[in-house]
Amino acid sequence: MYMQDWDIEFSHLDAGYGARRVLRDVSAILPAGKISVILGESGSGKSTLLRHVTGLSRPLGGMVRIGGRDIFALPPAEFRRLRRQTGVLFQDGALLGALNLAQNVALPLSEHLALPEHLLREAALRVLAMVGLEAFADYYPNQLSGGMRKRAGLARAIVAEPRILLCDEPTSGLDPVTAARMDELLLSMHARYPEMTLVVVSHDLAGFRILAEHVLVIRDGGLIFAGTPKSLLDSRDAYLRQFLERRSGDAGQTPHRPMNHRVHAELVKWLTS
């Protein structure tokens, strides 16, 4: 299979949950073998876009193509084959609580390959070492910090050496040092597996500057930018400038309504009691 076979393409994609439309007419290509970053405000539809690439949600309209083929029109066996080539890092890692880290990380292998226990553990330890968690192989997810769970989730996502790696907000909720470490980890993953198509959904601008080779920006369910990081940084578009410069856009216009006098009186009474 050639590298361009792993291009991810959205074609006039409409998506939503029930009556609520989350994405409208999104058309873009995430090139194979590159790191694409999908930026946007919270609730803009970034994670929904990712769910459509994994096949967890079906589009209301339009198509998601991988290697030029509509993934929702693939025969079941081919769709399953595609899934085996796709690794996903969920927002909180989504590690199985009943399994320790080594078992969690080895899960994609232990469920599909007939390998002895010691080889599965060895495979798990190999990728756990890559994310700096080899010493925590026997820990359970609830014994780890949020950052460690994300790194373990990343280890599980790459254990089968997928051609596509999708990361949903890999640095959200992490302190700046841990977030930077996560970004470096993703870069090192890409260096190690250069043919891998890496898609990172984020609103972390620092991470975007380090990682991105291709960028999409989504606003209110619509695609407003697709291109290189340089062209995004050079953009004169008012919203993009505001987003990149981390300005709220309505500074000084925050509506101020006085507190109801009875609520205020009760509050004062409670605070001084």
Partner: peptide, 22 residues
């Protein structure tokens, strides 16, 4: 239910592990 709301079942699906079988 907890596995469902914490994306663990989705994680099984994307690993091509049938959640009902598992």
């Amino acid at each position: 239910g907890v596995m469902r709301i914490t994306d663990q079942i989705d994680a099984l699906e994307v690993m091509d592990i049938n959640p009902v079988a598992y």
